[in-house]
Simulated assay, not measured.
Amino acid sequence: MLDKVFTNNQVTIAGEVVSDFTFSHEIYGENFFLVNIAVSRLSDSCDIIPVMVSDRLMDVKGDYKGCILQASGQFRSYNRHEETKNRLVLSVFAREVSFVEIPEGEQNPNHIFLDGYVCKKPVYRKTPLGREIADVLLAVNRPYGKSDYIPCICWGRNARYADQFEVGAHVQLWGRIQSREYQKKIDEEVYEKRVAYEVSVSKLEYLSEE
C-alpha cells in the first residue's frame, strides 16, 4: 500500500539555488528547511520553486547559492491559516538531493507525475487571445489518510478533455511545476505581490469515476 502511495506523486527537478535555507518545522526530532531553486524553461525564463529538505539529507547551514541542486520526491501541500482564511502552500518534499552539473545548452529537468482524484469541477475558459485553459484541482493520497491538493492547468485539447470530468474522477497526469506571480488585493488600495505554484499538464489520462 505504501509503495502505491509513494508512486502516485513523483517529482524530479533541478535548478540553481537562489536563497538560503530557512527553517520550516520539526517532526520527531527531524528538522525541515525550505530553499528556493530557479528551474529554467525553454523560453529562457525560469520558475522559482520551493524545496523542503531535511537536515538529515544535507548540511543546510552551507551557502549553496549558484549551485545546481537536483531534488526528487513529491509535490506536497498544506493549509496555512492567515487571519480568517486558509492559504494553500505548496513545495517539493525532497526524498533525495544531489548537486549536479547541467551540460551547456540543456534544460534543467522539471518532471512531475500525479495519480489522483478531481475534487472540484474543472473550470474551463478561454484567454483574450483564444487559448483554451482548464483549471483542475487534484487530490493525491499520501500515507495515514492525508491528501495533497495540487492545482493543475490543462491547455488546448487537454483543457477540453478535462472540462468533461466530474468531481471524483480518477486521473493520471504528467507535466512540469511552474510558478506564477499575481497581485493579491489586501484592501481598497493595497495589493500584495504573491507567487502561486501549479502543474502545467502535458499529458492527461482518465481512469475511472469513483
Rank of each mutant, 00 (worst) to 15 (best):
K4E: 12
K4N: 12
V5S: 08
F6A: 12
T7S: 15
T7R: 14
N8M: 07
N9C: 09
N9H: 11
Q10M: 13
V11T: 14
V11R: 11
I13H: 05
G15Q: 06
G15F: 10
E16M: 14
V17E: 08
D20T: 09
F21Q: 02
F21R: 01
F21A: 04
T22I: 11
T22M: 02
T22V: 12
F23K: 11
S24E: 14
S24M: 08
S24L: 10
H25A: 02
E26L: 00
E26R: 09
I27L: 12
I27F: 09
I27Q: 10
Y28L: 06
Y28N: 13
G29A: 04
E30G: 00
E30H: 09
F32T: 10
F32H: 15
F33M: 05
L34Y: 15
V35Y: 04
A38H: 06
A38I: 07
V39K: 11
V39T: 13
V39R: 11
V39Q: 11
R41P: 01
L42V: 12
D44W: 04
D44K: 15
D47N: 15
I49N: 07
I49H: 05
I49T: 09
V53E: 01
S54T: 13
S54M: 12
S54W: 13
D55L: 02
D55H: 12
R56N: 13
R56M: 14
D59G: 08
D59I: 10
V60N: 05
V60A: 03
K61A: 10
G62D: 03
D63F: 10
D63E: 12
Y64V: 03
Y64S: 02
C67W: 04
Q70Y: 00
A71C: 08
A71D: 07
G73P: 04
F75G: 01
F75A: 07
F75I: 13
S77F: 04
N79C: 00
R80G: 01
R80C: 02
E82V: 15
T84D: 06
T84M: 05
R87V: 15
R87M: 07
R87S: 01
R87Y: 03
R87N: 02
L88A: 07
V89I: 15
V89F: 05
L90A: 02
L90Q: 03
L90R: 04
V92T: 09
F93W: 07
A94Q: 05
A94Y: 03
A94L: 05
R95I: 00
R95N: 09
R95S: 05
E96F: 11
V97S: 01
V97R: 01
V97G: 01
S98V: 02
S98P: 00
V100N: 01
V100R: 12
E101R: 08
E101Y: 04
E104N: 07
E104A: 12
E104M: 05
